[in-house]
Design a protein around this nucleic acid. Structure first.
Lengths: 346, 346
DNA sequence: TTTAGCACTCGAGACGGGAGAGTGCTAACA
DNA sequence: TGTTAGCACTCTCCCGTCTCGAGTGCTAAA
C-alpha cells in the first residue's frame, strides 16, 4: 500500500482528468484532451510522458498504439480508494423521493419498488434491492376467520405487524365460537415464540396436546406450517434497460449476456457478496467473483432490518460514475434506515 | 371479404410455405426454397408467377428487386384469419406448469408470476398479465388487532378472502376488549356491503353514528378509507429480453425503442385494447393503435375474475409464430379460469 | 525537467469490384 | 392455356485496398 505515495500530485490530476473524461465520453483520452479540458499549465508532451509512466504502473491502458489512454481497473480502484468524493443526489431529487415515499409508507413492497426506481433513475444504472425474509420475528397472534360455507382463513400476525394468511377448509357444522376457541388455543401456546422455533417443534407438540376437533386443528397447523416455510429472499431489479445505453454494450452478444443476469433473481443474489456491512462497497470488473459480471462494476451496501441483512446497490459498466453511484447508494441507505426506524422494524 | 375465395389452393399453400419459412429464418424466401422445402410438384418458375400475383394482391412484399419475398402484414392477417391452426403447448409443458402452480396456489401474485413465465418461455416472446384490482367484492369482516404499546392493525377481509391491512395508532389506555367491540360495530354496519359502496357513503354515516372512542374509530375509518383507495391494476411483464434474440432488432435504436415500452407498466395497459373478450385476439403490426408498437404484434385474451376483466398475452415481432402464441394464450386462459374457479373467485 | 517537432502506427470509413441469390421475361412445351 | 426451362438483369453482401486523421514515442533543443 506504499502505492499511495507513489503517485505524484500531477500524476493524480492526470489520472483523474482521464477518468472523468473517459467515463463521460467512453472514448480513449489523448494527451491534448487532458491539457485542454483540465486547464493544467503543462504541455501535451509532458502529459504524454506521465501517461507512459502511469501505463507502466498499470493505472492506464492503451487499446492500440495510436489511440489515447483509458483507465485500467487498477486505475479506477486507485481513484475510488484514494481520490474520490461521493456525489450525493441533489436536494430536489431527495425531496422528490421523500414525497414519493410519503403516501406509500404502509406498503413495504411499494417502498422497495420506489427506492429501486430512485436508485436506477438517479444513477442511470441498473439497481437491485434484496429484501430478506423475516425469519426471526415473533409470533404475535393467530385468528381463524370463517368465510362462506366450509372455508376459513388462518391469519398469523407477527410482532412487527407482518400478516400471513392462508385459506383452509373446515367442517360445515363448525360454529364460529368454536373456531375462536381453537384460535385462542394457538395463541396461548405460541405467543412470543420465534417463528422458526414454532416451525421446528411446537406445532407437533401442540397437535398431540389437543385431541378435539382434530381436523380443523390439523388444517390450521398445516397452514401455519406452509406459511412459515422458508421463503426466498425477494429481489427487485429496476432499470436493467439502462445498460443498453452504454456504448460498451453495442455488441449484441455482450448485451444479451449481461441482460440475462437480470432475468434470474438468483443470479443477483449470487453476485453480491454474502457478508457485507452498511457502508458502501465497490467491486470493479474482475474483482467480481462470478464470470458473468467480470465486465461490470457493483456499488452496493447492506441495510439492517429485523435481524437479517438486506442488500441494495447498482450495477453498471466498469466505466461507471462511481462517485455518483456511491453517493446515491449511501443516501438511499440512510433513507431506508429512517423508514425502517419509523416503522419500528429495526 | 370475397377475398377468401380469391386465393387458389395453390396460392394458399405457397403463402403458408413462405410464412413458415420466413418466420423461422427471418430471411426473404425465394421461389426455389418454396418448391424445395414444401414438396410441391411444380417448378420454381410457376411459383415465381404465383408469387408475383400474391405480391400484386398485397399478401407478399419484396425488400428489393433481387431478393425473395416476405409476407406482408396483410399476408399474415390472411393466414391468421383463414388458414392458421393453433398449436397448443406440449403435454409435458402443461404438466410442468400444473406442477409449478400446485404448491403455490395460495399466493396469487406468485401464480401470476409463474403463468407469465410460462407464457414467455413457451412462446419465446415477452408476456404480460394485467391483474385488475378487486373493486366490486363484498366486505366480509374487520378486525382490530392490538400490537405492542400504542399500535394496532386494522384488518379488512373481503368475501373472497382478500386481506387488506394497515397499522394505526391507538390510545395507550385502550383495552383489547374495547377494540373488539369497535370491530364488531364495524362488522355489523358494513357486512355484505360492496367495498366501493362503503367508500362512498357508509363510512361517514358510521362516523356520525358512533360517538364514543372517537379517535380509534377515526383512525380505523381512515385506514379503511386508504385501503379502499382505487389501486392501480397490477401489470406483470416477463421475458421482455426475449425480443433481443429477434434479428429484426439487431438495430440498437430500434431495440431500445421497443424495450422502453416494457419499462413502464402504464404503456402496456394502453397498448392492449380496453374491451376484449375471453377468446384469443391478434393485432398485427400497423393494426396496433399506439405508434410505439406498430412494428410489433400482439396476441392476447381476457380472463374473467370478480367482475373486472383481466388481460394477458404476448408481444413479439410481426414475424411471429402466431400459431404457437395463440395456442399458448388459449391454453393459459383455460388454466387461469380453472384456478380462479377453484379459488371461488369467479 | 520540460517542450516543440516529426516520423510512425493503427483504426475508421470510403471506394470498388466480384460473387451469388433471386428475379422477370421470353420462348418452348404439354 | 397453363407450365417450364433458360437467360439476362439487378441488387446486396463481402472483401480487399486506400486514404485520412488522431495520437503516439522519440529526439533534440530550451
Amino acid at each position: 500500500m506504499g502505492e499511495i505515495m507513489s503517485l505524484t500530485d500531477r500524476q493524480r490530476r492526470i489520472l483523474e482528468s482521464i477518468i472523468k473524461d473517459y467515463v463521460s465520453t467512453a472514448e480513449p483520452v489523448g494527451s491534448r484532451a487532458v491539457v485542454k479540458k483540465h486547464g493544467l499549465k503543462i504541455s501535451a508532451a509532458t502529459v504524454r510522458n506521465e501517461m507512459a509512466d502511469l501505463e507502466e504502473m498499470g493505472y492506464l491502458e492503451q487499446p492500440h498504439t495510436s489511440a489515447g489512454r483509458i483507465p485500467s481497473e487498477k486505475g479506477f480502484r486507485f481513484y475510488v480508494d484514494f481520490m474520490m468524493e461521493n456525489e450525493t443526489p441533489s436536494d430536489e431529487q431527495m425531496v422528490q423521493l421523500h414525497q414519493a415515499l410519503e403516501d406509500r409508507m404502509e406498503d413495504w413492497s411499494d417502498v422497495v419498488q420506489r427506492v429501486g426506481q430512485f436508485l436506477s433513475q438517479v444513477t442511470n444504472y441498473a439497481s437491485f434491492i434484496i429484501v430478506p425474509t423475516v425469519k426471526l420475528s415473533q409470533f404475535h397472534s393467530l385468528q381463524i376467520i370463517p368465510m362462506q360455507e366450509d372455508q376459513a382463513i388462518v391469519l398469523v400476525v407477527t410482532d412487527i405487524g407482518i400478516i400471513l394468511h392462508r385459506r383452509i377448509t373446515i367442517p360445515l357444522s363448525m360454529h364460529p365460537e368454536e373456531l375462536k376457541l381453537i384460535g385462542d388455543l394457538f395463541n396461548r401456546a405460541l405467543r412470543g415464540k420465534n417463528l422458526h422455533e414454532i416451525k421446528s417443534g411446537d406445532l407437533m407438540a401442540l397437535r398431540d396436546e389437543i385431541k378435539t376437533r382434530r381436523k380443523v386443528i390439523d388444517e390450521a397447523l398445516e397452514a401455519i406450517d406452509t406459511l412459515l416455510d422458508p421463503q426466498e429472499d425477494r429481489v427487485v431489479i429496476t432499470g436493467a434497460l439502462n445498460i443498453i445505453k452504454e456504448p460498451e454494450f453495442k455488441d449484441l452478444d455482450k448485451l444479451r449476456r449481461v441482460l440475462t443476469i437480470f432475468e434470474e433473481d438468483d443470479q443477483i443474489k449470487d453476485i453480491v457478496p454474502d457478508h457485507i456491512g452498511e457502508e458502501v462497497a465497490i467491486r470493479i470488473g474482475q474483482e467480481n467473483k462470478l464470470e458473468d459480471i467480470k465486465e461490470m462494476s457493483l456499488v452496493f451496501a447492506g441495510y439492517k432490518t429485523t435481524g437479517e441483512m438486506g442488500k441494495m446497490g447498482v450495477i453498471g459498466p466498469v466505466r461507471m460514475e462511481y462517485w455518483k453511484a456511491a453517493g446515491t447508494v449511501e443516501s438511499v441507505g440512510l433513507i431506508i434506515d429512517e423508514i425502517l426506524e419509523r416503522r419500528g422494524l429495526k
